[in-house]
Design a protein around this nucleic acid. Sequence first.
DNA 1: TTGCTTGCAAATTTTTTGCAAAAAC
DNA 2: GTTTTTGCAAAAAATTTGCAAGCAA
Lengths: 145, 145
Amino acid sequence: MRRAARKRTTRQLEEVFKALQGDHTHPFAHEIYRRVHKKLRRISLATVYRNLHNLVEEGKIRTLLLDEQGARFDPETSQHDHFVCVRCGRVVDLFLRQARRIDLSPLAKQGYVVTTHNLTVHGTCQACVARRRTSKPQRPAARKA
Amino acid sequence: MRRAARKRTTRQLEEVFKALQGDHTHPFAHEIYRRVHKKLRRISLATVYRNLHNLVEEGKIRTLLLDEQGARFDPETSQHDHFVCVRCGRVVDLFLRQARRIDLSPLAKQGYVVTTHNLTVHGTCQACVARRRTSKPQRPAARKA
DNA sequence: TTGCTTGCAAATTTTTTGCAAAAAC
DNA sequence: GTTTTTGCAAAAAATTTGCAAGCAA
């Protein structure tokens, strides 16, 4: 069943949105809840989820499904890709520009209507490469695509 | 904690693997369970999950995280991309070849070690475009990346 | 026999939902 | 004042885990 469009602006919605502004860490819902909860002590996790979905539907933020850790949220709505460190879990925005050319017109010719596409790169980030020999993974290694 | 490497071959493992061979539908774990369960009536879903993970670790199959429906499994381990129909949920293998050029050397220069990358295209498949005006979505529309 | 793997059931984790009360307009 | 949104608690859905018993080597 389709979620009805949001009709009112609430303090909860505003704080959820603000919690993501300028953020480049691609947090999970519970982290966003943690941040908003500092401002609005009575807010519930359910409300955070509902408002995250509202914002996604309005195109103000994006949902990222990058690994088995669950959904992350991204205030950056322009076209860009992501790097996920399989060791520490960090997600970095990638702006590959000329290094990336994906021509989806072959799909259009076959009758597909393309709405979005996304590229995710998995590997080890600089920091984790540096400490590779000495320490253990910071999180369960992703068993991945 | 790291999962210990598999050491024995069981009927359950073999059937899970066989259930995926030649399959292009990218099934979820419960569908694989359903198939294997026809052969091995006593197998449990937990065993299917454990063996799917074993096969992924051995590189015999791949896990696909394409949308919020959860993990799918793919016996095709060669480099390829995926199209996900947001209307019916169908997943199609894409072999974009020349239409796709992704140069990840800029990442290497920045110190990242890249292990894998994947491209997912979302949109509407031919069949769903055809019935677009008349029918409703076959599944909840993905609120997506 | 030895010890890895299974089946079962319970536990986890993440996200969603029903409903009365509170807030927005 | 009316309708939407919230908070809470419970439900759902997907996946994982403990453990005794079963099976592979």
